[in-house]
Design a protein around this nucleic acid. Structure first.
Lengths: 147, 147
DNA sequence: TTAGATGCAAACCATTTGCATTGGA
DNA sequence: TCCAATGCAAATGGTTTGCATCTAA
C-alpha cells in the first residue's frame, strides 16, 4: 500500500519527499479506517510535519484517487483509503460500519442495471454516482455491539 | 411548502416565530436548489435575522427531516429541501445536476433489491444507505450545456 | 540548479456558543 | 407568565494561504 501511494506520486510527476513518505506510512497504517486530517496531524506532530503539509498532501492523494472522503452526519472531513484501481470507474460503492468505522468496498456496483432505467425515466444524463451503505459489520455484530 | 415547514415546527412542539417564518419563506423559495447557510444569511441580512438563528434553524429543519445536506466534492455545507414524506424510509435517493445544481428525488429506491444480497455477501447488517447520482438534467442538456 | 515542497504563523470561513434580551404560547 | 427563541459578539474548528527556506530531481 505504501508502495502504491508512492508510485502514484511519482507517476503524476510529484516529488517523493521525506515528509510525504512519513504521511504515506501513517495513512497506510489506517487500513480502511477513516481518519481526519487533524487526527493524522496529531499523530505525526512529533515527527515535525507541519499542519499545512498534512492537509496539502491529503488533498493531493485525494486528487490522485488514493483517498476519498466519507460523508457522515457529522460532516465530510474524514478520509479513507480507496481500493487500488477503484477510481477507474469513477466511483466507490462502500459499506461503512457505524460502530468501528471500517470501510469495505463493494466489488461489484449494484447500481449498474438501474442506471440506464433511471436515466431514461428522469431525462438526466447520468455521469457518476456515489453510494454509501451504513450498518454494522460482521465483527461488530459478533462482538455484540448490535444496538 | 411554507405550510409544510410551518406544520413540522408546530407538530414537533417548536415555536413559530417571525424570524423562523422569514427563514422558511427563504428556504421554500430555493425550491430544490441547494444553498449554503451563509448564502441564506446574506439574503436575509436586511431583515435583521442573526447568523446564529439562520444556522440554528437550518439545523432544526434538518433534524425534522425537511432539509438534507448535499455531499459534493467541495464539502457538504449545502442544504436542500427534501420531498415531503421522503424521510419516512430514512433515506433519500437523489439525482443532482452538476450544471444547475437542482436536485430531484427518485420515487423508487433502486437499491431495494440489492440490499439483501449485499448484506448476505458482506456479513453486514445493513441499516441505511445514501445514494447520490450526478449528471446533467434534461433542461441543461436541452440548453446545450452538455460538456 | 531550480521549481516544487516545507514549516510556521497568521488568515480564513463556515458554524457554534455564551449570554443578556425578547416574545410566542 | 415564563421558557423557548433571538441577536450579538466572540470563540471555535478545521482547513488554507503567504512567504522565506529547503531539497529532490
Amino acid at each position: 500500500m505504501e508502495q502504491r501511494l508512492r508510485n502514484l506520486l511519482e507517476q503524476a510527476g510529484h516529488r517523493v519527499t521525506e515528509p510525504r513518505m512519513q504521511l504515506i506510512r501513517a495513512v497506510a497504517a489506517q487500513d480502511f479506517r477513516p481518519f481526519t486530517g487533524e487526527a493524522l496531524y496529531e499523530g505525526l506532530r512529533d515527527t515535525g510535519l507541519g499542519r499545512a503539509t498534512v492537509f496539502r498532501t491529503l488533498r493531493l492523494l485525494q486528487n490522485l484517487g488514493a483517498l476519498s472522503r466519507l460523508h457522515l452526519d457529522d460532516g465530510c472531513q474524514r478520509y479513507v483509503l480507496t481500493l487500488p484501481g477503484a477510481s477507474e470507474n469513477g466511483h466507490h460503492d462502500r459499506l461503512i460500519c457505524r460502530q468501528c468505522g471500517r470501510v469495505a468496498y463493494l466489488e461489484q456496483c449494484p447500481m449498474e442495471d438501474s442506471l440506464n432505467r433511471i436515466a431514461e425515466q428522469s431525462g438526466y444524463r447520468v455521469e457518476s454516482h456515489h453510494l454509501d451503505i451504513l450498518g454494522l459489520c460482521g465483527d461488530c455484530l459478533a462482538a455484540g455491539n448490535d444496538q
